[in-house]
Structures are given as structure tokens and as C-alpha cells.
Design a protein around this nucleic acid. Structure first.
Length: 571
DNA sequence: GCCGTTTTCGGCCCGACTGTTTTCAGTCG
């Protein structure tokens, strides 16, 4: 089995986990965590690079020791340190760190004092009242752990960002209406527009924090209050989603936004910059000694550190701070840049609305053109169109275009890519369409080589223009297909094909990293709603967010182009 | 374990909340 970058990252993360339980130097643990992130995000396949006689360039946070371990893992799949650590600490004990309220110190203590190695044993001991015999544990901790263990399975999954947005809608409206509130901002991974969120982080700017806290913990959607103080509170909603609220005074709003938006790695990096300049950065502002010199806005915080404002989507400590320092941050695409959508469905296949309704909804969403791309015949479950029905739809679109104002419909199809890479409709009909979007919907389990060849063949087809939802993943429900994405991207680049960033909440496919790779290879991206109904165009917000995470400018995204330019490119 | 226009050794971001403590450790973000 070839060793992928993700495998190397997993080894480092496991080492960090075990070292935590062992109570090792926290900075050594951080070094392994950072290395895991760096390796996991690295663009090239490291094992292939080293195996081919290449050398790994100097990466931040990776010195002589970690490079040697990377080489060892790339060659063997593991490393001596991990094997040794595994013999010292049971793997199930490491898993205990996932339980809320259990950190490395307590895990170690439980292991030594009570011999507890698994979640099941922990639950049993807590129920039997044995935990309170351990130093630092009491009745209350025991009860909390029982709760945490019982609800863990149901509540620890990350939620697609589009679903989380819906889940906190009511709560946000209530908080914004609360007296004394100047603003409520969703921060955390939501504001960074990650494809999933683990919890929701809210920042309330207010001069009367106590009132906001009461409004928050007393809201009808709240099931449990986990923690509550004058400045912050944590609740669990009835939906199972955890929400943190932090209240802050207006003069500190910007610093608090930076702090609460993260990422953690970005925060650590900018605080280090503050330190190097003889300053201190915390959620209340930037301080020289005890004097606050910035903090009311995010821009003021970054300015005090000698940096331009860094967009939230880039704050992952993946090089954005260096780019900012050099004045080379990209001018990121925004939602308003989108002029069209090149992948939507109607009632003709599995959509819920007809052509005119979808056209009107797209126009209301600020779009100027819309490609109608219903499924093709092979996808029977979605009533896919055969040649005859597709030709009829094309005629309807022509007729409708004559009447429509402010929006233009393009003819198209989401044609199935068959198991062998051929397309599901004859060339003579594909040739007559404005845009052909190709997608895989079955044989998702093909081995890597065959799946990759299948996509290569499809991309080489003269009429295919866009590869839709390239990895076919459904977040939390279905793993991505096993495909060599670097080969697919290279193939798209070679043939001048475009890759889709499908913004359906469950898909968000391409991922931010793949999108970044595609961009680096010069491949254009189509941000598509894959709408099946008139309200689904709001998903485009999340697609744009993901594209921003990948560092895309408007010009990199084909559906920002004016219709004339797009038509020219399509010919 | 990494890193260096003060350093090759001694630093490494900073604060809130909880529970069990008699002044603070552990956990979390």
C-alpha cells in the first residue's frame, strides 16, 4: 500500500495523542501536531517524491528529527517512536481524550489509580461512584462524565456548514433582538467557511453582557447549559449542536473577532508576531504594556502587527501570514462576483420546480445566466433524460429565453459517466448543447486505478466541459471515491476542462485543498449550486466560501465571467 | 521538537470557567 501524506499525518497525530497522555513536554506535542497539519496539507505526494529520489524542501516547523521520521514513515508506513509508544499506552486510553472533561492528566490518573482504559470502563466506574475516590474528582465531575459519555456518540459528529446555518437561525434572530446587543457574529470554523463545523461560536458585542447571557441560556432551542459565566457560556441545542457565546465590549470587538474566529494555529502565529514586536495580543486588544493600542476592529489589530486584514477564510496558518506580510494576499472572489450557475435541475429529472421557476429564482439570487443540467437516462432513479426528452427541453429553453428578461438560460445536461468512462448520451446530442457537465453516480467502489482511468477518459471526451462533484463524497454519509486527484487535475489541465465546486451542503466537492491544487495547475473552477429547487441557490454562499479558502480570485471561476466571454470559452 | 537582526539554550499564546481546593489545577477554546 502506498503511504499517502494523510497517513504520515495520522502517525504524527497518534504520537501527539500518546505523548499527551504521557504528560510529555507540551511544545514537543505541538511540534508533532503542527507537523501533522503541514504534511497533511502538503501539495505533492511525499512518499512518491522521496521514493523517486527527490528531497523534501524545508517546511516550517519540520527540522532534522521530523524530516527523518517523515522519510521513515514514507518508506515503512510507521516509525519506531510510534511503535514504542503504542506498547506503553493502550490505544483505547488515548481515545478517552475525546470525552468532554477528560484531558491528558485525568486520563493518566484514571489509568494509574483505577486501571481505566476504555470509555465503557469509565462509564461503569462513574456509575458505581468509584471516580470520586480519585484525587481531583468529585460527585459533580462524575455526573458530568456520565452525561458526556452517554451523549457522546450522538453529538460528536461534525455538521455540514449549510445545515448548521439552518440550525442556529432562530437563536441568532433572538439574540440580535435582545436589548443592548450591538452585533452578533458567527465566528469559528463557520466564519472561516469550513465545509463542516463541530460547534457554533458566537460573539456578542454588547455593553450589557449579563442580559445577553440570560437571553442566550434561556432560549427555547437550548437543551442544556454546560457552562455559564459573566463573559462566556456554552449550551447544547435540542438539535445536539453545541453553541458557545462570548460577550465582549465594543472597544474590544475586533480583537475578540480575531480570537474567536481562529483558527487556533492562526491565533498562535499572530500572537507570536505581537510578542516579537514587544506587544501582547489577547481577545481584548493589542497591548503595549498595559496600554491598549488596537482592538476595536479586526483591521486595527492586524495593522498594529504590521499586517493587512487577512480574510477569515484564509486564517489557517497555511502561509497566509507570510503572504500578508509581503502584501501578496489574493483579491478573493466574493458572492457578488457570481453571474451564473452551470449546474441545476428541474422537474424533468429529480428537481422540484420547472424551468420558469428556476429561472426566476436564479434571477432573484442576482444571477444573469443559468445552465439547465438535468440528469441523463442512465440515472433512472432521477428520471434521467434520453435524447428525445433532452431535445424537447432544449426547444422549451429556446422558447422561454425569448420571453425571459434579466436572465438567460443555457442548454445543458449532467450526463452520467459510465463505468468505463464513456458518456451516457450520443455525441450528436451532446454537440448541440451549450454546456455538458459530466458526473459519476454509480460504481463508486472501483479500485483507484480504474476509477482514475474512468475520469481520465471522460475528461478527454471532446464534448465534456465540466466534471461535476469530482470526489462524489457525501459528508458524514459516504466516503469520496478512491481516485488519484492529482492525475485527474493534470488531465483536466491538459484538456482545458473545468472542475466543479459543488456547493450542496452534503457535497462541498471539490474540497478546499483539491480546489487549491487545481488552481495551482491552472484549472478553472465552476462554483455550482447543484440546485434541485428554487431555494437552493443560497448554497452558492458556501461554495464561494470554500473557493475563498482555496485562494481563488473571481477570474479563476468561470461563472463569474460575463455571458459573452463564457459562451466564447464554451465554443 | 523547533528555532534564532538580542539567543545554539531557553524560550515556545493567552484567558475563561469549573470543581475541588483552601490558593489552584485541569480543561477548553
Amino acid at each position: 500500500m502506498p503511504v499517502r501524506n494523510a497517513d504520515i499525518a495520522a502517525v504524527f497525530d497518534e504520537i501527539a495523542d500518546i505523548l499527551e497522555v504521557e504528560g510529555a513536554n507540551p511544545y514537543r506535542i505541538r511540534a508533532y501536531r503542527n507537523a501533522a497539519r503541514t504534511v497533511g496539507a502538503y501539495g505533492q505526494d511525499i512518499a512518491a517524491l522521496l521514493g523517486g529520489g527527490g528531497t523534501l524542501p524545508k517546511l516550517p516547523g519540520i527540522g532534522a528529527d521530523l524530516s527523518a521520521k517523515i522519510a521513515e514513515i514514507a518508506a515503512t508506513g510507521t516509525c519506531a517512536l510510534r511503535e514504542r509508544l503504542r506498547r506503553e499506552i493502550p490505544a483505547t486510553l488515548v481515545a478517552l481524550l475525546q470525552v468532554a472533561g477528560i484531558g491528558p492528566k485525568r486520563a493518566k490518573l484514571l489509568y494509574h489509580d483505577l486501571g481505566i482504559e476504555t470509555e465503557a470502563q469509565l462509564l461503569e466506574a462513574a456509575r458505581a461512584g468509584r471516580l470520586r475516590r480519585v484525587h481531583g474528582f468529585g460527585e459533580k465531575t462524575e455526573r458530568k462524565l456520565i452525561d458526556a459519555l452517554q451523549t457522546r456518540l450522538a453529538s460528536d459528529r461534525r455538521v455540514p456548514i449549510g445545515h448548521a446555518a439552518v440550525a442556529v437561525d432562530d437563536l441568532l434572530a433572538a439574540l440580535r433582538a435582545c436589548s443592548g446587543v450591538r452585533s452578533i457574529t458567527v465566528c469559528g470554523s463557520f466564519r472561516r467557511m469550513r465545509d463542516t463545523v463541530g460547534d457554533i461560536d458566537l460573539l456578542a458585542v454588547s455593553e450589557r453582557p449579563a442580559a445577553v447571557m440570560r437571553c442566550f441560556t434561556g432560549h427555547a432551542s437550548v437543551r442544556d447549559v454546560l457552562a455559564q459565566g459573566p463573559a462566556r457560556a456554552t449550551v447544547v441545542l435540542r438539535s445536539g449542536l453545541q453553541v458557545d457565546l462570548r460577550a465582549i465590549a465594543p472597544e474590544s470587538a475586533g480583537a475578540a473577532l480575531v480570537y474567536f474566529t481562529g483558527s487556533k494555529a492562526h491565533n498562535i502565529a499572530v500572537r507570536r508576531i505581537a510578542q516579537q514586536r514587544g506587544l501582547k495580543l489577547n481577545e481584548y486588544g493589542v497591548f503595549r504594556g498595559t496600554r491598549r493600542i488596537a482592538g476595536e476592529t479586526e483591521a486595527s489589530v492586524y495593522r498594529a502587527l504590521g499586517l493587512p486584514l487577512i480574510p477569515p477564510e484564509l486564517r489557517e496558518n497555511r502561509g497566509e501570514i507570510e503572504l500578508a506580510a509581503q502584501g501578496r494576499l489574493p483579491e478573493l472572489i466574493g458572492r457578488k462576483d457570481l453571474r451564473g450557475d452551470l449546474h441545476v435541475h428541474t422537474r424533468s429529472s429529480d428537481g422540484t420546480a420547472d424551468l420558469a421557476v428556476m429561472a426566476e429564482a436564479a434571477r432573484s439570487a442576482g444571477l444573469e445566466y443559468l445552465a439547465i443540467t438535468d440528469h441523463s437516462r442512465h440515472l433512472r432513479i432521477a428520471h434521467g433524460l434520453d435524447e428525445k426528452r433532452l431535445l424537447r427541453q432544449m426547444a422549451e429553453i429556446d422558447a422561454l429565453n425569448a420571453r425571459l428578461e434579466g436572465i438567460t438560460l443555457l442548454t445543458g445536461v449532467e450526463v452520467d459517466i459510465l463505468e468505463d468512462g464513456r458518456l451516457d448520451l450520443p455525441d450528436r446530442v451532446l454537440a448541440r448543447l451549450d454546456v455538458v457537465v459530466g458526473a459519476v453516480h454509480d460504481h463508486l467502489g472501483l479500485p483507484r486505478r480504474r476509477q482514475t482511468q474512468r475520469l481520465q477518459r471522460a475528461l478527454a471526451h471532446p464534448h465534456l466541459r465540466i466534471l461535476a462533484h469530482p470526489t462524489c463524497r457525501l459528508i458524514g454519509e459516504r466516503e469520496p471515491i478512491d481516485v488519484d486527484m492529482s492525475v485527474v487535475i493534470a488531465c483536466a489541465a491538459e484538456h482545458g476542462r473545468w472542475l466543479e465546486l459543488d456547493a450542496q451542503p452534503l457535497r462541498m466537492d471539490l474540497t478546499d485543498r483539491d480546489c487549491e491544487q487545481a488552481h495551482a495547475q491552472g484549472v478553472r473552477i465552476s462554483i455550482a449550486s447543484d440546485a434541485h429547487g428554487p431555494r437552493d441557490f443560497l448554497w452558492l454562499d458556501y461554495g464561494v466560501g470554500q473557493a475563498r479558502r482555496a485562494g481563488l480570485r473571481a477570474s479563476d471561476v468561470v461563472n463569474t465571467w460575463p455571458l459573452a466571454a463564457l459562451r466564447k470559452a464554451l465554443r
